[in-house]
């Protein structure tokens, strides 16, 4: 059961409205090789892929549930856990690594008391390591919410985080 209304819902205890999912499924039904785009669109709609949703997709597309989970767990962009609206993404490409992105990640983890891949206890942020975002010219790169912060230092990252909380 979800006991905290401030957190995103775990989806386990209540009925999910499959309406939006069905609309997406209807566009793809009967075509070949549609599983990945279907998952992408449904995730964009619901935020993450809960178990009931994945089961629904498997049933509707007539694909084994194990196969759908195989695909969901294979690709790093699919989430099987709820995520909060704000993500802090730390680019872990080579250029960012050489310019100290590991230090930035470790300090964010310490500051927020989470590990990469987890949501903070107050449910405000999800911290994520991401593969190279291709903005190596301005490494190291942190994407805070919608904003890309380039050539950033540990001190500046922590400042940005603290100021973000004040907003």
């Amino acid at each position: 059961m979800c006991d905290n209304n401030d957190k995103p819902c775990c989806g386990a205890h209540k009925e999910i409205d499959f309406g939006a999912a069905d609309e997406i499924l209807n566009q793809y039904r009967g075509k070949e090789g549609v599983l990945i785009p279907v998952l992408q669109k449904i995730q964009a709609e619901y935020g993450w892929l809960s178990q009931p949703l994945v089961e629904h997709i498997a049933r509707e597309l007539n694909i084994y549930l194990s196969e759908v989970y195989g695909v969901v767990s294979f690709y790093s962009q699919f989430y099987t856990e709820p995520r909060w609206r704000y993500t802090i993404q730390i680019c872990r490409g080579t250029a960012c690594h050489v310019k100290g992105s590991l230090r930035i990640l470790e300090n964010i983890e310490d500051e927020l008391d989470v590990k990469a891949g987890q949501m903070t206890k107050d449910g405000k942020f999800t911290v994520e390591e991401v593969n190279c975002v291709g903005a190596c010219g301005i490494a190291p790169v942190v994407i805070l919410g919608q904003k890309t912060l380039g050539s950033i230092t540990v001190a500046e990252t922590l400042d940005a985080l603290r100021n973000f909380e004040e907003q």
């Binding site: 695909v71 790093s76 699919f78």
Partner: peptide, 19 residues
């Protein structure tokens, strides 16, 4: 959908096929 190995040609094709 985020997988480095998909840069490999046969893996890429498997991915287009939805696997």
């Amino acid at each position: 959908a985020g997988a480095f190995v998909c840069g490999e040609e046969t893996a890429l094709m498997a991915s287009i096929e939805g696997m």
